[in-house]
Design a protein around this nucleic acid. Structure first.
Lengths: 128, 128
DNA sequence: CGGAGATATATGCAATTGCATATAATTCTC
DNA sequence: GAGAATTATATGCAATTGCATATATCTCCG
């Protein structure tokens, strides 16, 4: 818990210092960019990011207001919608990754050797 | 990040199901109970828990309102105060520990062997 | 077909958090 | 020993989160 708090706080701080939005924006954008169509249903994002449904709904509002994603209708089911990443969203994700990757390097990369990092990942995977 | 989120969410959920307050209350109470005098300065709690100063200030308000801690004057420095855990606070911490220890067992203990848990702790310690 | 649930998403409202700054006291410097 | 800088804690206000529930479909079953 403490380790995560420290690392997360450090990363958020670096995003902020670079004038970038919080990590949760990155998580959503990255899920969208990762899939080839560049779009997902909210409930799919929810499952992938562990964001609560109501928090995600409002996070999408904010992303949409900034023009980073668009809500589009989903014809097979009128309850649903697509969340599609825009070009601006892709660009933002890339900009955030510049900072994020550096942060990871600083706060994790320099603290653990390659085998240690792999061991850590393997142990954490057992918790999920 | 994901592993921590999952485990933390599961623990908070179990606290809530038992009608208990959030984990952050436990963290503060535990720091207080751990020291023999049963009291600390806010800035000491802050350093030990990683809570932000303004969040801690308000968390102490809530704990005080519930009668779990008391703010007492600190004579050597009139800016400061002691935060002293009350009997009710000690009792609450103990009640929370019943749930917390079970949660840890469920969400960590059953997922990792003893040497794995030690290895995980050692790796995470390197991040801090 | 006509509900009775189930599912997908949104939203009003209260609680918490974050930010910036306030307040009050202490220490340091010349 | 009078500011100036620093430290300890609190607080007004905006943003975010959590909770409960709303809304709109959809699915399934008799």
């Amino acid at each position: 818990m403490r380790a995560q708090q420290r690392v997360l706080a450090a990363i958020e701080k670096e995003f902020k210092a670079a004038g970038l939005p919080p990590l949760s924006w990155y998580d959503v954008l990255w899920e969208l960019v990762k899939v080839e169509a560049g779009r997902l249903r909210p409930f799919e994002i929810e499952a992938r990011t562990l964001l609560a449904q109501y928090n995600l709904s409002r996070l999408i509002d904010r992303l949409e207001k900034e023009g980073l994603v668009r809500r589009e209708s989903y014809d097979e089911d009128a309850r649903g919608c697509w969340v599609t990443v825009t070009e601006a969203g892709r660009a933002m994700r890339a900009r955030m990754w510049d900072i994020y990757s550096q942060s990871i390097e600083t706060h994790v990369g320099t603290k653990l050797s390659e085998p240690e990092a792999k061991a850590l990942a393997a142990l954490l995977a057992k918790l999920s």
